[in-house]
Each structure stands twice: as structure tokens, then as C-alpha cells.
């Protein structure tokens, strides 16, 4: 809380809140696009220039109104077996949603449906108020996905992997690849081919992608697999920071994960 302060600064999702003579403007500045005024609150001069948004919680809430992710009546069928049906779920900015359930209950299938990679058997995924297929491009500008197959190229070095990912993601980067790798505890491994790294280190490279781009929505499929204790702690920290600054996280994991201070929801599949 309390990151949004009226002034010229832009927060990490490109939201700028500025006080004007008769109220507060919430402006959306996305890289490569013209800034557009998203919201103008007329407050009849009650907001002092130096007031923080913390003092006015309704503004903070509005400022965080990044689109919400919503699943409505999803059904997933794999090889004639219904994995789940009539599944409703919603993820609001600032929330972490943990998907739980035994093996084969459709956790990965659910995440892939939410990413728009698979089609649901029935039902629809909504981003904001629009069905996913209609806002695909905008959705993919907001989404970072680390899947079961983590998408790290063995022949490339971690730095090359991250550079490629940054170019693919477009927009302005959040951090340089070296910093992101250092944050994940991979100093000294920047320039060795990823195939010589351990499985846990490759997963760290994949997770470093999250720091490279400013994406409000993270969908993480078993991100803790193969990570050691320090790695788990780093990932927990990443998720906590992300949620606190208004991001959304959808996660599956079999391991215990400690996310104190986060709004943590649970979604149970398979009974």
C-alpha cells in the first residue's frame, strides 16, 4: 500500500496519478502509446498537493483497477474425461490465487486455458469485461507465464535467453538482464550455456523473465519445482512484492509456500 503518490512519477505498471487544480488525474502511460487519462476525480479542491493516496483509499483502489481476470463456467475435457466443469474464479489486482489439487486434476490445463493457450470445453475467460479472444493482444501485453516447460533454450546463455525474451515482450524493460539474474542468485552463470546448468538454475532463469517485463498478471505453473530453499525464498519474495504493488499472481504448487501479508485465495480442483 501507499506506493501511489500524486506527482509526476509513473509506477511500474505505467500508472501515473497527478493532482490538478480540481481533483486527481489517473493517467495510463504505456510504452509506445500516447498517455491517456483514465480517470479524473473531481474533488472540489479537497486534495492537497502533498496528500498521499494512502490517505484517500478510494483513489488507491481506483488506481489499481487494472483489469481483473475472471473465469466463468469453465469446463475442461481431456480425452473424453471431464477434468472440471462449471468452474468460476476471479483474480483481482493485488491478489494471489493458489490452485490446489491432486495430480491429474487439471491444474496445468486450467492455467493453459487462462493463458489462452488451450480452448475451454465450455465457458469463457474474461480479461476486464471482455472475453479473452477479443482482447488477446492487450491480454498478452499484461501476461507473464512460466509454464511447466519453462521455455529456456539450452544452447543459449541466461543473458541471451533474457535478452530474447525482452525483445519478444516489447515495451520498455523493467531491469537489465544482469540485474534480474543477480536477483535470482545466478551471478557468475550469465555466460554459460543453459544446458550446462542444473534444472533448478534453469528454472531460476525462467523466473528471471518475470523481472524483465512489467506484467501485472503472472501465471506460474509449479514455479518451485527443483528449487532449493534459497530459491524458494526468492520466489516467495518476488510474489509478495508483486502482489503488494498491485499485481496479480496465479500459481500452482505442491510445496508449502509462505506468502505473509498477501491476499491469498485458494482454488481447489478435483473434489
Amino acid at each position: 500500500m501507499g506506493r501511489f503518490r500524486p506527482g509526476a512519477e509513473t509506477d511500474r505498471f505505467g500508472i501515473r496519478i497527478a493532482a490538478s487544480g480540481n481533483g486527481v488525474h489517473v493517467t495510463l502511460c504505456r510504452p509506445g502509446r500516447r498517455p491517456c487519462i483514465w480517470l479524473h476525480l473531481a474533488t472540489a479542491g479537497t486534495v492537497a498537493d502533498k496528500a498521499t493516496v494512502d490517505d484517500r483509499p478510494e483513489i488507491a483502489a481506483l488506481a489499481r483497477r487494472a483489469p481483473r481476470l475472471e473465469a466463468r463456467a469453465l469446463e475442461c475435457v481431456r480425452n473424453d474425461r471431464v477434468l472440471f466443469h462449471d468452474l468460476d474464479a476471479a483474480l483481482e489486482p493485488g491478489q494471489v490465487l493458489q490452485v490446489e489439487g491432486p495430480n491429474g486434476c487439471g491444474k496445468t490445463s486450467l492455467l493453459r486455458i487462462l493463458c489462452g493457450l488451450s480452448l475451454p470445453g465450455a465457458g469463457e475467460v474474461y480479461w476486464g469485461d471482455a472475453p479473452l479472444p477479443e482482447v488477446r493482444a492487450e491480454y498478452y501485453e499484461a501476461l507473464a507465464y512460466v509454464g511447466h516447460r519453462h521455455g529456456v533454450k539450452g544452447e543459449l546463455t541466461p543473458i541471451e535467453n533474457l535478452r530474447f525474451h525482452r525483445a519478444l515482450a516489447g515495451g520498455t524493460p523493467d531491469r537489465v538482464p544482469g540485474d534480474a539474474l543477480a536477483h535470482l542468485g545466478l551471478e557468475g552463470f550469465e555466460d554459460v550455456p543453459c544446458r550446462t546448468l542444473s534444472e533448478g538454475q534453469r528454472r531460476r532463469v525462467a523466473l528471471a523473465r518475470l523481472l524483465m517485463t512489467r506484467r501485472p498478471l503472472w501465471i506460474l505453473d509449479e514455479p518451485l519445482t527443483a528449487l532449493d530453499r534459497s530459491g524458494v525464498a526468492v520466489v516467495e519474495g518476488l510474489i509478495r512484492d508483486h502482489a503488494r504493488s498491485g499485481g496479480m499472481v496465479m500459481i500452482t504448487t505442491h510445496q508449502a509456500i509462505r506468502l505473509e501479508g498477501c491476499v491469498l485465495g485458494r482454488l481447489r480442483l478435483g473434489g
Binding site: 463456467a73 465450455a122 465457458g123 469463457e124 472475453p131 479472444p133
Partner: peptide, 8 residues
């Protein structure tokens, strides 16, 4: 059994 799908 099924609700109206997108596209219909």
C-alpha cells in the same frame, strides 16, 4: 447440457 458458446 451446454450453454451458448461464443461464436453462435
Amino acid at each position: 447440457m451446454k450453454r451458448v458458446q461464443r461464436g453462435e
